[in-house]
């Protein structure tokens, strides 16, 4: 549960940064200090906690700012208020750098490395997990309607059964973005009627799919609820959704002062694939374990602490 909301964190950044500036010269003598930020969702809290526990074990003193909004994270890092944040290639490409071209995972990573490098930020090695949009269907419905496995198959089924009511649930963000629903419907030839489209809170999309109230819906590929709610993620066979591979982004200045950080973080990133991330998210969201205990468990079972 993330208590700090946007307003609190915005207020908190200033004194925290000031404090860090005062304390940093003192602390540097004994141990390196690193300032990490987490955005306001489970995966981000988990990644930040993993980093925190891991780096503390390696002798860093770690300050974490929790619950930053995406819009605030980048300015805070460029302002030298944050040293490390887990970023997604797609977010940097689309939101921060306004690149509209659709690139695959590798090209996305190359491009953000170049673009952000010019701004004094270094992308470390990426994880293999891709937390992008996807369409999910209730497993039972997917099997019933001719075992739908890809987004194209869903379009075919819908076109062949125009009398069936296909309620499509999505979050308001996806519904409103040009690179969201309209583009997707065009690429795959979905013809939804107005009453079949329902935008709602992201958390409700999963509930609607679990209750089989929705035929399909937009989910995030690493979300723990996908397995827990028995949902089937459809393959994006026409590569519509941008790649959102996660990687630690560090201020280049900081990396030059602490070059060993690169190799240390690479060891952690190498362990995080899609299946693992989904499982870790599920332990927090579904089993309601604390991020700290999940992080400790994971790191110690892989010998990192």
């Amino acid at each position: 549960m993330s208590l700090p909301t946007l307003r609190w964190t915005r207020l908190a950044v200033v004194p925290l940064a000031a404090l860090a500036l005062c304390v940093a010269p003192l602390a540097q003598a004994q141990q390196p200090n690193i300032r990490v930020a987490a955005k306001a969702f489970t995966e981000q809290r988990l990644l930040a906690t993993l980093t925190q526990v891991y780096l503390q074990h390696l002798g860093y003193s770690v300050d974490v700012t929790w619950g930053l909004s995406t819009a605030l994270t980048r300015p805070a890092q460029l302002n030298d208020e944050i040293d490390l944040v887990w970023e997604y290639t797609g977010t940097s490409l689309i939101v921060y750098n306004h690149v509209e071209e659709v690139l695959d995972a590798e090209a996305s990573y190359q491009r953000v490395t170049e673009l952000d490098g010019e701004k004094g930020l270094t992308w470390l090695a990426p994880t293999s997990f891709n937390n992008t949009y996807a369409i999910a269907m209730p497993e039972e419905i997917a099997q019933r309607d001719g075992d739908i496995r890809t987004m194209s198959q869903m379009a075919e089924w819908m076109a062949a059964h125009p009398d069936q009511f296909h309620l499509f649930a999505m979050d308001y963000d996806f519904a409103g973005r040009a690179d969201g629903l309209p583009g997707m419907a065009e690429r795959y030839g979905y013809r939804f009627s107005r009453s079949e489209l329902r935008s709602m809170d992201p958390g409700l999309v999963y509930l609607a799919l679990r209750n089989q109230q929705a035929y399909g819906g937009i989910v995030y590929t690493t979300d723990g609820r996908i397995d827990a709610f028995d949902l089937r993620v459809l393959e994006d066979d026409k590569n519509y959704f941008p790649a959102y591979n996660a990687a630690p982004v560090v201020r280049t200045d900081y990396l030059q002062a602490h070059p060993e950080l690169r190799e240390q973080m690479d060891r952690l990133s190498a362990l995080l694939d899609e299946e693992t991330m989904r499982g870790l998210n599920a332990r927090v969201d579904i089993e309601q374990q604390s991020t700290t205990s999940v992080a400790r468990d994971f790191l110690s079972s892989h010998g990192l602490i």
Partner: peptide, 18 residues
């Protein structure tokens, strides 16, 4: 809107969030 029904809240809340 917060429980997934359509109303004018579909303009209000996304307006706030976005």
């Amino acid at each position: 809107f917060l429980i997934g029904a359509n109303s004018l809240g579909n303009l209000i809340f996304p307006g706030i969030y976005l």
